[in-house]
Design a protein around this nucleic acid. Structure first.
Length: 183
DNA sequence: TGCACGATGAAC
DNA sequence: TTCATCGTGCAC
């Protein structure tokens, strides 16, 4: 498996989101290598995108989004679940792609349909916030055999507060995949 | 220092 | 539709 390099992430969030479908998320911890195939994502375009956390400006939490591409933006939601994003585009653009669902490949226990469940199953938490994905132990890789995917575009989930931005088709998933969170 | 709320998920 | 549960951001 070939780990994705910086150039993969150094592009507009929508492009990266499209290309992440079918890629493998890898997390090695406690001597266990967990691998899941990315089947659902959402793009957050930057401070002008009112659904993006970076729309509130740079804060201690969102600082990573304003940094260089290829880093993990992990945060706690509702005090219970974690959500994982990949920072995209050039430094300062503050855009990212939220990973919403995985298809288990190796050592993935429990449901993975949804951003919170995905992180639980992959043992991802705040300790990985800011982690460089172009490194060992926690990264994204091209699968051994890339299978053709048909992409579906839908509005993002849970961002009704974002006005017209809530209507944009920035949620992408693999058509027909049974691990998508809300087909 | 206090407080309202969230890129969720599960129960009722 | 309600609730669990807590860090974050902003008001005071």
């Amino acid at each position: 498996m070939k780990r994705l390099g910086r150039v993969f992430y150094n592009r507009p969030a929508i492009e990266v989101a499209h290309d992440l479908l079918g890629k493998y998320l890898v997390h090695v911890s406690g001597g266990v290598e967990r691998v899941g195939r990315i089947v659902e994502v959402e793009a957050y375009l930057g401070p002008h995108d009112l659904a993006a956390h970076s729309a509130k400006g740079m804060t201690p939490r969102t600082k990573v989004m304003f940094g260089p591409p290829g880093h993990a933006y992990v945060y706690l939601i509702y005090g219970i679940y974690h959500c994982m994003n990949v920072v995209t585009d050039r430094e300062g653009h503050a855009s990212a792609v939220l990973l919403r669902a995985l298809e288990p490949v190796r050592n993935v226990a429990g449901p993975t349909q949804g951003p919170g469940l995905l992180c639980r199953a992959m043992a991802i938490d705040r300790r990985l916030h800011g982690h460089d994905l172009v490194s060992e132990h926690f990264y994204i890789a091209a699968p051994p055999r890339a299978e053709p995917v048909v992409m579906v575009k839908r509005p993002r989930v849970g961002v009704d507060y974002a006005g017209h931005w809530a209507k944009r088709l920035l949620r992408f998933y693999i058509r027909g995949n049974p691990f998508v969170s809300k087909p």
